[in-house]
């Protein structure tokens, strides 16, 4: 379980240009679920998730992650254990690659967390398999494969650490549609098969609607809304109020209902819609 308790973070505190990035955040993120954090650029999403890895320490309030407690004005201890538990995949994570070969790079994380060379290599191979990079990539330089493959290698570098909680900042940004879909389905599988808690920052409402369990909406450093994902997007009045783009299927349903259909809240995909049509059409 992850719990933020009235947590605030101020950048460049005590400086004339200090800015409050997030303020008074109270948030509980359920274990074993996919939680999407959405909001406009500059709403504080990245600041929020960097706390999960103690890369930023709260200016006020506290953060509880399982048995780790990080409090303002207290020295954070045992960061390594925390970082082993929470894997953070940064936006454009491909820039963290540096070893001579992809396999070595992916094994870098587990080695830092104390695994032996052979164990780390074993974990690295498993992680590479998960992200869909086969043996032919093991000996290639991470710096001269394609962008999408770099991203996969970087994500494998985090998965190899085997964190319980995986935090992803815009994992699909800059990928082509197929790569993007494969990527998100990988995390969906990790959640369903290996019961990893996934925390996902994204601008893509289609992904949130189709894959997330919970939605947290941030605006100007405050939490505006926290809701079950499907219910959040079905509430079109709320979406209008918050100025949020509808997922395509919701927009389609809305248009059809305006023309006289009465498609209910249980229709979530094109397949559902087709089924509905067969029964009622």
């Amino acid at each position: 379980m992850v719990k933020f308790e009235s947590l605030s973070y101020i950048y460049a505190k005590d400086m004339p240009y200090a800015t409050t990035a997030i303020e008074d955040i109270d948030l509980e993120i359920a274990k074993g679920k996919i939680t999407a954090i959405i909001g406009k650029t500059g709403s504080g999403k990245s600041t929020l998730i960097q706390h999960l890895n103690a890369l930023l320490l709260p200016t006020k309030g506290k953060l509880v992650i399982e048995d780790h407690v990080i409090e303002a004005d207290k020295k954070a201890t045992d960061l390594k254990a925390l970082r082993k538990k929470v894997g953070l995949v940064f936006q454009f994570s491909e820039y963290q690659l540096f070893e001579e070969t992809i396999l070595k790079d992916v094994a870098f994380g587990p080695k830092n967390f104390g695994l032996s060379e052979e164990e780390a290599i074993k974990k690295a191979k498993e992680a590479l398999k998960l992200v869909g990079l086969d043996e032919t990539y093991y000996t290639r330089s991470p710096l001269d494969v394609s962008g999408g493959q770099k991203r996969r290698a970087a994500i494998a570098g985090i998965l190899a650490i085997e964190p319980e909680i995986i935090v992803l900042d815009e994992p699909t940004a800059g990928l082509d549609p197929r790569g993007s879909k494969e990527m998100i389905e990988l995390f969906y599988r990790l959640n369903k098969d290996l019961h990893k808690t996934i925390i996902l920052v994204t601008h893509d409402n289609e992904i949130v609607y189709n894959y997330a369990d919970e939605v947290v909406l941030l605006d100007k450093g405050h939490i505006i809304e926290k809701k079950e994902a499907k219910a959040f997007f079905e509430d079109t009045a709320l979406l209008d109020e918050l100025d949020i783009l509808r997922p395509q299927i919701i927009a389609l349903k809305e248009a059809l209902n305006k023309k006289g259909a009465s498609i209910g809240d249980d229709v979530h995909s094109i397949d559902d819609l087709a089924k509905y049509w067969r029964q009622h059409g």
């Binding site: 994570s93 820039y95 994380g109 650490i161």
Partner: peptide, 13 residues
């Protein structure tokens, strides 16, 4: 800063 943070997440001290 960004790369440092990314590597810290991978257990670099």
């Amino acid at each position: 800063m960004r790369i440092m943070n990314a590597q810290k997440s991978r257990g670099v001290d």
